[in-house]
Each structure stands twice: as C-alpha cells, then as structure tokens.
Simulated assay, not measured.
Amino acid sequence: MKHSSSPQSATSIPRAPRDDAHARMTKYFIMMSVRVGCFVLMVVITPYGWHTGILAVGAILLPYIAVVVANVGSDSRPVRAVPPGREIEASAPPADAPEPESVIRITETKPESQSRPAPETPDAPRQGDA
C-alpha cells in the first residue's frame, strides 16, 4: 500500500502527454511552414542578391532547428506541490435553519406495488375465447 506524506495538488500535475505532443507538433508545423516560405521566396524574388542568401540559409537550417525544438518538449521536471492557503472545515447546517429558496430537492419513493398484467401475445389464446 502506498502512503503519501502530503496530499497532491492540482497545480503540480505535469502537462498531459497528448497536450505536450500537440504543442510540439504545432511548433514543428509552424517552423516548417516558414521554411517552405523561405524556399519559395528564395526562388521567386528576383534579382538575386543578399536576401536570397538569407532565405537560403533559413530554408537549409530551419528543418534542423524545428526538429530540435519539437523534440525538447515541455519542462517535465516535477514541480513542488503548492499547499492551499487555508483549509475550510466542513460543517452541517443547523437543524432549525430554513432551507434556501434556490435549492430544489428531489426525492424518489418506490411504489408500493407494481402489479401490471403481462402483455398479451397475438398467438396466445384469450381467456374469453374457446
């Protein structure tokens, strides 16, 4: 049996793997879109000059940078739990206290008897027939 010395806090829970993967794929997609833009602009813009070299460097280096950034992921170090500022004690309302008007109470009671006749089938003979 596992015993914990302190309760867990919702603020110390790491990001879900699905959300982390989605964030990394989004970063990769954006960087690769910029790379495609660099490549297209490198070919389309004329006359060729210093800007063509910058776009070429971007088209060549961005795949490497995109893979590195996508594989880093989020900071997965465990975070220390944050204790609550104060604890609230649970208490029942006094027995003679009136019930608030905004509260609706629904109660169910089991019926005394549920004696329903069995449904008739078309092939079964009826009591009056014979």
Score class of each variant (00 low, 15 high):
Lys2Ala: 15
His3Ile: 12
Ser4Trp: 14
Ser6Arg: 15
Ser6Ile: 14
Ala10Cys: 05
Ser12Trp: 01
Ile13Gln: 11
Arg15Tyr: 05
Arg15Asn: 11
Asp20Cys: 05
Asp20Glu: 14
Ala21Gly: 03
His22Trp: 10
Arg24Phe: 00
Thr26Phe: 04
Lys27Ser: 07
Lys27Tyr: 00
Tyr28His: 09
Tyr28Ala: 09
Tyr28Asn: 03
Tyr28Arg: 09
Ile30Thr: 10
Ile30Ser: 09
Val34Ala: 13
Val34Asp: 02
Val40Trp: 02
Val40Leu: 15
Val40Asp: 02
Leu41Gln: 05
Met42Asp: 07
Val43Met: 15
Ile45His: 03
Pro47Ala: 11
Tyr48Asn: 09
Gly49Asp: 12
Trp50Glu: 11
Trp50Pro: 00
Val57Leu: 13
Ile60Arg: 02
Leu61Asn: 03
Leu62Tyr: 01
Tyr64Thr: 11
Ile65Gln: 08
Ala66Ile: 02
Ala70Glu: 04
Ala70Trp: 02
Val72His: 07
Val72Ala: 14
Val72Asp: 04
Gly73His: 04
Asp75Val: 05
Pro78Asn: 14
Val79Trp: 01
Arg80Met: 10
Val82Gly: 01
Pro83Leu: 12
Pro84Glu: 14
Arg86Gln: 08
Glu87Lys: 07
Ala90Glu: 12
Pro94Glu: 15
Asp96Ala: 13
Asp96Ser: 11
Ala97Val: 07
Ala97His: 05
Pro98Leu: 13
Glu99His: 05
Pro100Trp: 03
Val103His: 02
Ile106Gln: 11
Glu108Val: 15
Glu108Gly: 03
Thr109Tyr: 03
Thr109Asp: 09
Thr109Asn: 10
Pro111Asp: 13
Glu112Phe: 09
Gln114Lys: 13
Arg116Trp: 12
Arg116Ala: 09
Pro117Trp: 06
Glu120Asn: 04
Thr121Asn: 08
Ala124Phe: 05
Pro125Gln: 04
Gln127Pro: 00
Gly128Lys: 11
Ala130Cys: 09
Ala130Val: 13
